[in-house]
Design a protein around this nucleic acid. Structure first.
Lengths: 190, 190
DNA sequence: CGTCTATTTGAATGTACTCAAAAGCGGTGG
DNA sequence: CCACCGCTTTTGAGTACATTCAAATAGACG
């Protein structure tokens, strides 16, 4: 299992001793997912923080008309969860699905809480991760309020250059908040 | 200055000893703002976390056409900041303005960092605050992607019942992402 | 009380959606 | 490795939700 990527991800924000590294890694449980396999379904309780080492996950909701709305993509080196469900331990509203064969490392809620108490540096690490996620989410919200679909797509291209070429257009359309039909027309005229 | 509200706000998530409480309160600097007074301008660096004890703040951006887009309202018992600027200590994009005579308590970035090291419970407190803010932000993003203006307004009414009656409709319109003109028409037909 | 801002109203416009159907592409099994 | 099937992408016509601009009215703060 690819723990190098994870340790480097963590080293961006906190420094761990070799012992702490080993202790932490021992808590991470690997899991492989097939293409289209579900990590989490709406209605379930999210019991883990998930770190992606290979492939790609996406989280989305279904609206009352049955349409999907993509909340996030998680390529390698990203953390993902249904944060609402994870912190409240109540049934969530998100689906998390593998878009291709994917490998993840799972940290259980209990182990994560334990880690916060044992090694406060980890509380700092996850605080920083969530702060950054919050900033991104707010920026995306403002982009949705103030920009056209065309401009939101341009920003998506800048922010996720590798995903632009690898993801189905339908998924990108959903992320930026337009229908696949409109996205197709937009691409032609641009 | 109203430190009771602040101590109760904190007690929702962590327990402090009387000494810790006193130490913390000593770091909070009070400030009064007049109606329409700016706490922060776009282009400035956000140097404090702000806790509102009276009145109401709002954060917003200006788009390239000069239109305002409200990111957040902060009535009493709420924390607010330009999180991007606060964590990066770079010039931000948000304006934070008092909507009415407002009283706040300010915690400087330096003092907050110090607090994280001295009393790890505070790192936990702010982690939890940001986690909740992140969940709200994501939910609002999904609402903007999947609901009509009508439905977003209904959700706003449920979530901020006190603000619905006290805020100018123009501000609510901006928050839910429609023009004041359309908001007016929507209210008539509903 | 006066002025400035918020709100309403109306008409014309635009951006993006819905529905339907054809064309293209890719994964999976034989 | 190929062919088929299913899903993605495209295309077109009609429609809806929301915007823009202009102007009248109402309301609130100093």
């Amino acid at each position: 299992m690819n723990t190098d990527l994870l340790l480097k991800n963590i080293a961006k924000h906190i420094q761990l001793t070799p012992t702490e590294q080993a202790h932490f890694i021992a808590l991470m449980k690997p899991r492989s997912l097939k293409r289209k396999e579900m990590m989490l379904q709406a209605g379930e309780v999210s019991r883990h923080s998930t770190f992606v080492t290979k492939g790609c996950l996406r989280s989305y909701t279904l609206d009352k008309n049955g349409y999907e709305h993509v909340l996030a993509f998680a390529p390698p080196d990203w953390w993902i969860a249904d944060m609402y469900s994870f912190i409240s331990q109540k049934p969530g509203t998100l689906y998390i699905e593998a878009m291709e064969p994917t490998e993840v490392l799972l940290l259980s809620k209990a182990d994560q809480q334990q880690l916060y108490g044992d090694i406060p540096k980890f509380e700092r690490f996850f605080r920083i991760i969530v702060e950054n996620a919050f900033v991104s989410s707010q920026q995306r919200l403002l982009d949705n309020l103030s920009l056209t679909a065309q401009e939101r797509f341009r920003i998506f291209c800048e922010k996720y250059p590798s995903l632009v070429t690898s993801l189905p257009r339908k998924q990108i359309a959903s992320y930026i908040g337009v229908t696949p039909e409109f996205f197709s027309k937009m691409m032609k005229s641009a």
